[in-house]
Amino acid sequence: MKEDEMIICRCEEVSYEELETAAAKYKCSARELKLRTRAGMGYCGGRSCRTMVDKIAAASANDQNRTCVSLKYQPPIRPISFENLGRGR
């Protein structure tokens, strides 16, 4: 396995190369990188890959926002079974 092919986002199977290419082309924020590649949008909610997506974006983007978490957290922050989702609401 070559470095380019190594998987960064396991849930969405996004490789290092895909992220690198998108970051180099768009010089975008971590959020935009996520939307373009789907890295961080899997069922773990980005728990495994968010710091890596952040770092790739930070290495290409011009500026990093210090006052707000770059990849937004969305509830539920842990998986919930379908049965219990929305129960009692």
Binding site: Q64, V69, K72
Partner: peptide, 24 residues
Amino acid sequence: LYPLAELAAVAGCPFYLVEELGGY
């Protein structure tokens, strides 16, 4: 290691990135 602050984030708490503390 980095601080696990997901719940503070969904609550809308203000954050700051401090490398010496390990992150946001």
